[in-house]
Simulated scan of single mutants.
Amino acid sequence: MKVSPDYYDEIFHFKGEWDMPSLCGLKIRIIKNKTYIIVTELYQDNPGTSVTYAGEKLARQICEQKRLKLEDCVYVECTPDTNSKLSFYDEEYFIVDFSADLQHRYRQLSTDEIKQIFEHKVINRIEE
């Protein structure tokens, strides 16, 4: 099951659980002085930890590499549409609040919220 490159601007390499080499799709958008970090699950193309299980560790690695402050960012996890008959492979986006308890950590974005995020231009990438 291949994830369309429309979901990401770059493949981001990160250390997952037990420092396992892992991959995710990454988009960064700036909207009204707020930075949105959108990570996309790559399924079989990711040899390691999923974005959901990597969570805050992944967010911190992205911020460190891109010279961002996590507290100034909105972290979004994307489950991309893979044209599967299985409903858990449908497209979904969730804002993740790492300061919230587990019950309130994830908030699913509406279609309108998703459109607003993707209407904005890509920020200049900061090279390693």
Rank of each mutant, 00 (worst) to 15 (best):
K121E: 12
E56A: 12
I28L: 10
Y53N: 15
D45L: 07
P21E: 08
F94T: 04
L26W: 06
V76N: 07
M20A: 15
I95H: 06
E92R: 15
H104K: 13
L23W: 11
I38Q: 01
C24M: 08
K85G: 10
K69L: 10
I123N: 04
D45K: 12
D81Y: 02
E56N: 15
W18N: 15
R60Y: 13
Q65V: 09
P80I: 02
Y75E: 05
A59G: 13
T111Y: 11
M1T: 06
Q44S: 13
F14P: 00
Q44H: 14
H120Q: 15
W18D: 15
Y75D: 04
R60A: 12
I31D: 03
N33P: 07
E10G: 01
P80C: 09
S50F: 04
S22W: 07
T40S: 14
I37M: 04
G55V: 08
D9L: 01
I37C: 03
E77V: 04
T35Y: 08
N46F: 02
L86G: 03
E91D: 07
K27N: 11
Q108R: 11
S50M: 05
Y89S: 01
S22C: 08
D112S: 14
E119L: 11
S87P: 10
T79D: 02
D90M: 06
Y8M: 02
F98Q: 03
S50T: 14
I123T: 14
D6I: 05
D72R: 14
T35H: 09
P47N: 07
E91M: 10
P47S: 07
P21C: 10
L42Y: 06
R60V: 09
I126P: 06
K34R: 15
R67D: 04
Y53M: 14
Q116P: 03
Q108D: 01
L68Y: 07
D112W: 09
V39H: 03
K69M: 11
K121D: 10
K85P: 06
C63F: 09
I28A: 07
E10L: 02
D97G: 02
E71G: 02
T52H: 13
L86R: 14
E113F: 03
T40L: 06
E128W: 14
A59V: 09
I31C: 08
F88V: 08
L42K: 08
Q65F: 13
Y89K: 12
D101G: 11
F94R: 14
H104R: 13
G25F: 00
I117W: 10
F14V: 04
V122W: 05
R67K: 15
I30G: 00
I38R: 01
Y53C: 09
E71H: 12
V39W: 02
S50I: 01
I28N: 03
R105P: 00
H13M: 08
D19P: 08
V76T: 04
F118V: 03
M20N: 15
V76C: 05
K15C: 08
P47G: 05
E17K: 15
T111S: 11
C73V: 07
C24T: 06
I95M: 08
D112F: 09
Y8I: 02
D90V: 01
L102M: 15
F98A: 02
K115V: 09
H120L: 04
K121M: 08
I30W: 06
L68R: 12
M1L: 10
Q61T: 10
G16H: 10
Q116Y: 10
V122D: 10
K121S: 14
K34C: 03
S50K: 12
P21T: 06
I114E: 00
S22R: 12
S99D: 03
L70A: 09
L86W: 13
L23D: 05
T111W: 06
